[in-house]
């Protein structure tokens, strides 16, 4: 990383010069495309996953987590796909494939090990809760929420080099994505979307990553879902880094989803219960 850190760094340069970039296993990407395609089938999803035994083993462990509470043990991938459904198995594949880098310490954001992970799982679970209320596809909302902050994994190392400037610019009243743009020319949402595009992830997942702090620009309910869930998670203290709660919330996202803002208490109550249960049960299986 010999490049001079400057605002002039393009997204391509920033990504190319970031060491230890996160990646997704080939099998996970294949499953994402398979589930996104009208021709996708349970058999082909199972076949892709079985090509990566380590990944398949992690998915089976997750399938048997307390969260899904099946009376019997799921022992084979094809069985998991049939019992849980393709969309849920896709989410488990995304969780299993991203966990190794999601748990990294991100010094540029002052995030300790597993702190990005717990925030991401909270937002994924929150997106699912919001989608349920808005009568949308819950499993799709989960995957959109899970990856919304992947840009932070690439941005962290660059922010770490700018820590003095970050301190100077860090008035709590300024939104943090604004500070990122001032210091590096890009924010973590743009970097995350670029990364997701380079993995060839579908637009339905890229859009919420790019616009999760500016959902009014996306005209997409899935992005609104992630935005509201991010607000719930930050309010609940699931973001412990430099940035804390320093992002804007767009009240329009609630309106577009048909959510009643005066009912925020019960939405938060539902979110807290599922975030806690989900996070713990997945963590137990992944750390095992």
């Amino acid at each position: 990383m010999n490049l001079q850190i400057s605002q002039c760094l393009t997204l391509e340069q920033l990504i190319e010069n970031t060491p230890d970039l996160p990646t997704l296993p080939v099998a996970v990407m294949a499953v994402v495309h398979e589930t996104d395609s009208p021709e996708g089938s349970a058999q082909s999803v199972a076949r892709y996953l079985q090509q990566d035994p380590a990944l398949a083993a992690r998915i089976l462990r997750l399938s048997n987590s307390a969260y899904y509470s099946f009376s019997r043990q799921i022992t084979e991938i094809p069985e998991a796909v049939v019992v849980l459904g393709m969309r849920v198995v896709r989410n488990l594949a995304l969780i299993a494939g991203s966990y190794p880098w999601m748990v990294r310490e991100l010094k540029g954001y002052e995030l300790g090990p597993k702190e990005l992970w717990s925030h991401s799982i909270a937002v994924a679970t929150g997106s699912q809760t919001v989608a349920r209320r808005a009568r949308m596809n819950e499993a799709e909302a989960f995957s959109a929420g899970l990856f919304h902050n992947i840009g932070k994994v690439a941005m962290s190392i660059w922010l770490e080099k700018k820590v003095d400037a970050l301190m100077d610019a860090s008035e709590p009243s300024r939104s943090f994505d604004d500070i990122e743009r001032e210091l590096l020319g890009h924010d973590h949402a743009a970097v995350g979307a670029f990364l997701a595009e380079s993995w060839n992830l579908p637009k339905t997942l890229v859009r919420p990553i790019r616009f999760h702090h500016n959902p009014e620009e996306a005209e997409d309910k899935l992005t609104d879902c992630v935005h509201v869930a991010d607000y719930l998670a930050m309010s609940a203290g699931y973001n412990r880094g430099w940035d804390g709660l320093r992002y804007k919330v767009d009240p329009g996202a609630f309106l577009r989803l048909g959510l009643d803002k005066s009912d925020l208490g019960s939405l938060m109550e539902e979110f807290l219960q599922s975030a806690e249960t989900r996070g713990k049960s997945l963590e137990e299986k992944l750390a095992a």
Binding site: G244, K248, V249
Partner: peptide, 14 residues
């Protein structure tokens, strides 16, 4: 009682 940035009193959770 910290707040996310908003002008909308309905969203003042803290």
């Amino acid at each position: 009682g910290a707040e996310v940035h908003t002008q909308d009193p309905d969203l003042f959770m803290g």
